[in-house]
Computed example of a mutant assay.
Amino acid sequence: MSKSKLAKPAFLLLAALLLILSVSACGNKSKSDELTAVKFSEVIRSIFYAPHYVAMSQGFFKAQGLNVDMNTAQGSDKGAAALIAGTADISLIGPETTIYVYNQKGGKTLKVFHQLTSKDGSFLLSREKLDNFKWSDLEGKTVIGWRPGSSPQMVLNSTLTKEKTSGVNVVTNIASTAMAGAFASGQGDFIQLFEPVASTLVKEGKAYYAASLGDTFGAYPETSYVATSDYIKAHQDVIRKFSNAVAEGTKWLNSASDDDIVKALKPYFDATPDDIILQSVQNYKKQGTWSTDPELTQEQFDTLQNVLVENGVLKAEDKVTKMDAVVDMSFVGNIGKSD
């Protein structure tokens, strides 16, 4: 038999294999192309938002057909600006931003569609160990706090009012990324921090836990998923799927093993030791941070507006009287339901 006759079947077999590989590659590409891109902005990077990172690492967003591109805004004001400018589709920010934007009567309005956290996520740390901390211990002391008008700053201020504590010097002009460094270098007697930075300072022996602002102040809708009214109207399916994925992340976090939780969060906190990641999650679980019902209720909304008025960033006459002007809980009400 000639060499050409022997080579022909081998050539046909090779061609068939190449065709299969080509079809397979095309199939994978089209499946990837089916994912809807979502530009997402988080206010800061914190384990306070663990359910979101779980939804990303465990593939809950992709299972819903979404490809979430995440960046960190470093402030609710910046996250809200990104929505208005169109550089973000969805932002995880303080719900008070929706009220501010609404009262500006501009061309766009923002709406909360999913309430992620139901407590403040900051912890008060002291430079010296205090066995029985009392809020009166802050009198005459300096606290490194958050920027004016931010949720943690307002919650601290309202807590001081609630606890009838006066004469406290709260520093509010240090960037959030520089706060821990400033305290470690000797500035301030106390500091207000989120996890995992709080647990990191404690582990390093540079600070001691004094109090949980979440436990002390009580229920407070600190961080919400927000989008423009226009985006929500035009992309209802995206909002529904996004809300479903986050809810799945919260559910998973409440039942997963310690090892699995650390593995899920590690990609977003690669410089944080495993024990600190776990300690941070446990601290937030202990205070009931992540509700399995991510609804922003009327009672929570009223609490929010009362805090804004108490802190002088909202006039009483400028309160939003109809919550649905800045809140849309219809997607939360349909979590888990099929099309």
Rank of each mutant, 00 (worst) to 15 (best):
F60R: 11
A82V: 10
F123V: 10
Q64T: 03
Q279D: 05
Q74P: 08
D137V: 04
T250P: 02
K141H: 05
L138Y: 00
Y208Q: 08
G79W: 07
F301N: 03
L138I: 02
Y100W: 11
T161W: 11
T297Y: 00
Y284G: 08
S330G: 01
D33Y: 08
G65R: 10
V313G: 03
C26R: 13
T200H: 04
Y231S: 01
K62G: 08
A325K: 12
V54I: 11
F11H: 09
L253C: 05
V23W: 14
L278R: 05
L66P: 07
V202C: 06
H235M: 03
I20L: 15
S136G: 12
F48N: 12
E204K: 12
D293F: 02
G205I: 11
V332W: 00
G140T: 00
K322D: 09
I239A: 00
Q236H: 05
S185P: 08
V320L: 05
M179E: 14
T292A: 12
K8A: 15
K108D: 05
A227R: 02
A325V: 09
I144H: 02
L193I: 06
V101T: 15
S24F: 15
K266A: 09
D259A: 11
N157H: 13
P221M: 10
Y231D: 00
N169H: 14
A15D: 08
V262E: 02
A85H: 12
G106N: 05
F183S: 03
Q298M: 11
A210Y: 05
F113E: 02
K108E: 11
A182I: 07
Q64W: 03
F48S: 13
F301P: 03
D189W: 00
K39L: 14
S280H: 04
S30V: 15
G86E: 09
L35W: 04
D69P: 06
L19P: 09
I47K: 01
V281S: 03
Y53P: 10
S280W: 04
A50M: 02
G59Q: 07
V226R: 01
D77V: 13
D302S: 15
S255R: 14
F123Y: 15
T159W: 06
T97Y: 10
A25F: 11
T250M: 07
M329S: 15
G188Y: 03
M70R: 13
A184Y: 08
I84K: 14
L12R: 14
D258R: 12
V246C: 07
A15V: 13
V170H: 03
R147S: 14
Y268N: 05
A81K: 14
G79P: 07
K78F: 15
P273G: 09
T223V: 12
L308F: 03
G149Q: 00
I276H: 02
L278T: 00
S22I: 15
S2G: 10
L314H: 02
N306L: 14
G218H: 04
